[in-house]
Design a protein around this nucleic acid. Structure first.
Lengths: 335, 335
DNA sequence: TACTCCTCGTGATTCGTTTCAAACGCCTGA
DNA sequence: TCAGGCGTTTGAAACGAATCACGAGGAGTA
């Protein structure tokens, strides 16, 4: 089951078999046919480890994400996967479940695998890892952390702008009693979202009230956070969620408690995942173009046909408010 | 950046470095410390390709699925991932997007990677691939296809039973006008679901009407299928969906058209993904234990600590009807 | 002191590929 | 006649790590 067996059977050298398999077209047709025959007779499958060891280069890109269950990450992954497929690259994913120990392990694994490029799209970023990857030779994409330049591309979503849109929209609707529901990964973007929100609300409606609840990044986490929020005192008139998946969980709990959306409570999400359009009521959210992020990741990691890369730059993504049915004017009188 | 560099720096042989890195504890403490120091100074990461080439064995399991976007597959993946993590295995996924050409490519890739075991959980199965994998030496898990025995484990979900429960429940509620919404992967399990459904309904309610619509396996596919169904003639009183993700899409369209669920139309899903509980109204569905499937996959591919495997068996999974709010009695009079 | 038995290290070989430099037989132009 | 070219193929040296079969010391025993 090795090149040598195939070579022996086709009565050629291993070098020739290698050429046939790699499509180097200096091989005579009759020889090629003999080799192909031997390959299929032996059901030979080239050993990819040997191949990338000998070849040096790797045609594999790596992506590390925090939570594949969140469609946000999955969509980014999908876009990268599509590009990889087109250009004949392999893609390997690692899922950290927001655990920074797992992030370290995944990073080691990727480096050990000698990936051609690595995208790290996580919330639990660690300074040591940033430093180590920055010093490495391979193209790297960071999401919302690190310093662009050299081999480092930074993709930054302008969360501040997105959150400001949400805040200004809700304030315009007359809301003054807010709650923010987030998850435990408080670093980086999440934190930025929250700060942008409070800053803006404080400026636009100085008397507004703001509560904060955190739970897991999942449907259940959203539901549980809402349960905690709603069982203590009077409910807010607007709940701003850190992302759509949590918002859908929140809506479930709000409905179950007999509150109407948006008549009693307005709810917003973030990301504009597909589900946000399909849930009930359809969720007002902020669109983040995951496919653009994915394509940008690929373009930064792998040079295009003419050898160009976007490597080393900072790429800013601008979000957009999407109005749907989960938000409305603040209720006139306290319930 | 290779073993040799590390060895030189630590003034030992490569074999010793290898021992230290692999935890073979016949190395003197002082030597080990010297080696570790060199490793971290050089930021050395062992080349995994070289490692698995030299080592022979692979500690990697492969999983091929049809559609990672469908939480059903994602949940199975997650369960396998958890087991891999516990036992120190790596997991590599491939996503075929229901394309059998992609399935062939992914299979080749897995074999080339010399995975320790391979699970193929797809709807677009191909006889050649079944045959080839059956002849291979590595442990294989098939989902609803193939013949158990030897290196082949077959996991079979008793779709027939699940569908019968749905049918008998809806018939008992007085429904006689049904539609089935499925996706394009008509082979294998899907087909079984549909046949079981029609068989049972025909037996229990001979005069019942049954329509069939197919579309993509996604929220949008469900919505579009429902749109097609509802724009032609009078709507059915019950829509049975091949899985939850499509059912959620269907519900969206049904709501938009001003029909009430379940007063005007009952809707059922299949799989019991987490979303089915969080959508509105909560979806009546059939529970399929994805985590059990995932753990079974792992147990069939990798021998446990005492060397036992479930390899070679057929494992039947029994689904269970889960009643929620999307189903109710058939409306008394035609709308 | 001489013996065996361990502990710790070493050198050399192996894994399955890619790829470079060289060689093959044959032909051409000077 | 011979140097050089052509198209095709080959042999052998990498690639980076694991591991086998030893060997050099040191400790323990008689």
């Amino acid at each position: 089951m090795s090149l040598e067996q195939v070579a022996k059977r086709a009565r050629v050298s291993t070098a020739t078999v290698s050429r046939v398999l790699n499509g180097v077209d200096v091989v005579k047709n009759s020889t090629r046919a003999r080799v192909m025959k031997a390959v299929s007779e032996l059901k030979y499958h080239p050993n990819l480890h040997a191949r990338s060891l000998a070849g040096g280069r790797s045609r594999t890109v790596g992506v590390i994400v925090s939570n594949l269950d969140n469609p946000f990450f999955l969509d980014v992954y999908r876009a990268v996967e599509a590009d990889c497929h087109v250009r004949g690259y392999e893609l390997v994913v690692a899922n950290t479940h927001y655990r920074s120990e797992q992030l370290a392990a995944s990073t080691r694994m990727m480096l050990g695998r000698r990936v051609a490029g690595l995208a790290v799209i996580v919330s639990e970023m660690d300074d040591n890892i940033i430093a180590e990857l920055t010093e490495s030779a391979i193209p790297i994409v960071f999401y919302d952390v690190g310093t662009p330049g050299g081999n480092i591309t930074k993709i930054r979503v302008n969360y501040r702008k997105g959150m400001e849109r949400v805040a200004e929209y809700l304030v315009a609707l007359g809301h003054v009693d807010f709650a923010f529901i987030g998850h435990h990964a408080v670093l980086g973007p999440i934190d930025e979202r929250f700060r942008a929100l409070t800053d803006h609300i404080k400026a636009a409606a100085p008397k507004a009230k703001m509560r904060v609840i955190a739970n897991a990044d999942s449907l259940e986490g959203g539901r549980d956070a809402a349960a905690e929020l709603l069982s203590s005192g009077s409910p807010p008139t607007a709940i701003i969620c850190v992302n759509d998946i949590m918002a859908v969980g929140v809506m479930k709990e709000v409905r179950e408690r007999g509150l109407r959306i948006p008549e009693d409570i307005s709810i917003t999400g973030f990301d504009n995942i597909q589900l946000s359009e399909f849930c009930y009521p359809a969720l007002t959210t902020v669109h983040i173009p995951r496919d653009l992020i994915g394509h940008t990741v690929f373009a930064s990691l792998v040079p295009d046909e003419s050898g160009r890369t976007t490597e080393g730059r900072e790429i800013v993504i601008n979000p957009e408010l999407v109005l749907r049915d989960s938000t409305g004017p603040a209720p006139r009188q306290p319930r």
